[in-house]
């Protein structure tokens, strides 16, 4: 996977995306830098999930193209894409009660031949991935019987077992309680620090201030603003995006660090 330095890990050029007969966005340009956390924000229906499906190659672009390390995504074999790009969907319950470890082992699929079953090495990697998200003791539990937060972390572990350098996480915090939201995003942050590239969407701007290197604010299928969270997400832009007054406040995190938080329903400071 050699690429020229400075080539974005994942990029969209003049991307038109949507479903047959229904354009969701057009002319979208986006560059995801390697080893960063990029967070997509935007109101419901702005096209985040559709954009993600297009970036993952699950939905064909209506115009423009998606580039994976500078190479057009639609010209790469599915298996090669899967070795480079992992998808962490919103955790659904699943149809069948697969043991958690079996779910994580499925992340090894792009590394196995068509007729191959995972071996001891794959199982060891899956165990290590499960351990990395702190759920090693759930290995034998049915995926259908664990909590939503645990399921989300199991899917993160599956992406780790996939060993893809780029992770695309679609609203991983959507159905999680306060503590699990933090745990999942903290894990995503840690992955970027360890050399992976994370693209994640969220409905909470505070998540961007806290965990992201870059924020992308979307409106109506287009990028309204992109850049460092503190620059892009000002009170005016957030208020316009969500249609409510939003104020920003800086809080003392201790040790001389300052964090920024959103306060909905109040004006600028």
């Amino acid at each position: 996977m050699s690429a020229r330095p400075g080539t974005p890990a994942l990029a969209a050029e003049g991307l038109g995306f949507g479903y047959p007969g229904q354009a969701v966005g057009r002319g979208l340009d986006l560059a995801i830098e390697a080893e960063t956390v990029t967070m997509l924000l935007g109101p419901n229906g702005c096209g985040k999930t559709t954009l993600f499906r297009t970036l993952l190659g699950l939905l064909s672009p209506q115009a423009g193209r998606v580039l994976l390390r500078g190479r057009p995504l639609d010209q790469l074999p599915r298996r090669d894409v899967a070795r480079d790009l992992a998808y962490v969907p919103q955790a659904a319950e699943g149809t069948f009660p697969f043991p958690v470890l079996d779910v994580v082992v499925m992340g090894r699929a792009p590394h196995l031949g068509l007729f191959e079953s995972p071996g001891a090495r794959d199982r060891a990697r899956a165990e290590a991935a499960l351990d990395a998200v702190g759920l090693a003791d759930l290995a034998g539990r049915p995926f259908t019987a664990i909590s939503g937060g645990q399921r989300q972390l199991v899917l993160v572990a599956r992406a780790l077992a996939q060993e893809a350098p780029i992770l695309v996480m679609d609203e991983p915090t959507a159905n999680l309680d306060y503590g699990n939201q933090f745990r999942v995003l903290e894990r995503a942050r840690g992955l970027a620090s360890a050399g992976r590239t994370v693209v994640v969407s969220s409905h909470n701007p505070d998540h961007a201030f806290r965990f992201a290197d870059r924020a992308v604010l979307m409106r109506g299928g287009a990028v309204a603003a992109a850049g460092a969270p503190a620059q892009v997400l000002d009170a005016a832009a957030l208020s316009a995006a969500y249609g409510i007054p939003i104020g920003l406040r800086d809080v003392d995190l201790g040790g001389g660090r300052v964090g920024r938080v959103c306060v909905p329903g109040v004006g600028p400071a």
Partner: peptide, 20 residues
């Protein structure tokens, strides 16, 4: 021959395709 790969179909279209 495909016995392990069949499991991936249980994940659903998007997830299975994202796994190659």
């Amino acid at each position: 021959l495909l016995r392990w790969r069949v499991n991936l179909m249980a994940l659903g279209e998007d997830e299975a395709r994202a796994l190659g």
